[in-house]
């Protein structure tokens, strides 16, 4: 028997994603790549960011209220859109489920929107179980809030997100 706390940590959607591993398998191409390692346990991930030119229609129309709306007329070229994340990694169920949930979330977002969601995810993971006011922008990844109670596991959940953040920063730095 497992306690309710443990069942809360390992919710079915997390266990499912740890096996589903959406986005797993590096795809050729991509504009940036990041390798992240958790040296205390050996969990690691190599993640690639794949972009397509932003055409206004995008691949997904669910980017919603994430803050760039209204900026559409700004600048010479509209921001590209994330086509997909692809990754290769190994680690515990939390780190693999988190990479999978992130890969489900990212397509259709702009890099700026993804950066905002990564910041929100980080805030949630640092909340020690308190969560964040509005976790809607995180989609199914909001389920990982349960991990924030287990401070030793926060790094596991963050691994893929740190890799994604790094790829976005590489792209931003390259364009600056």
């Amino acid at each position: 028997m497992a306690s309710p706390e443990l069942a809360g940590l390992y919710q079915q959607v997390i266990l499912d994603h740890s096996k589903l591993r959406k986005g797993s398998g590096l795809v050729d191409g991509g504009v940036a790549e990041s390798h992240q390692l958790n040296p205390t346990c050996g969990d690691e991930i190599t993640l690639r960011l794949h972009l397509v030119e932003g055409s206004g229609s995008g691949l997904g129309s669910d980017s919603g209220n994430a803050g760039t709306a209204g900026d559409g007329t700004h600048g010479s070229a509209s921001e590209p859109i994330i086509e997909r994340l692809s990754w290769d990694g190994q680690g515990c169920s939390i780190s693999m489920a988190s990479a999978s949930l992130l890969s489900e979330l990212a397509p259709g977002l702009t890099p700026t929107e993804l950066t905002e969601r990564i910041a929100l995810f980080r805030e949630m993971m640092r909340s020690r179980g308190a969560g964040v006011e509005d976790d809607e922008p995180l989609g199914d990844a909001a389920v990982l809030e349960s991990v924030s109670k287990y401070i030793a596991r926060v790094k596991c959940a963050m691994l893929a997100w740190v890799a994604a953040e790094d790829t976005v920063q590489q792209v931003t730095a390259g364009r600056a």
Binding site: A2, L6, L9, C41, D43, G91, C92, S93
Partner: peptide
Amino acid sequence: GVHAHDVGQFLDD
């Protein structure tokens, strides 16, 4: 089929 970290978490429970 189960990563050591998950094993440790289960046992800690």
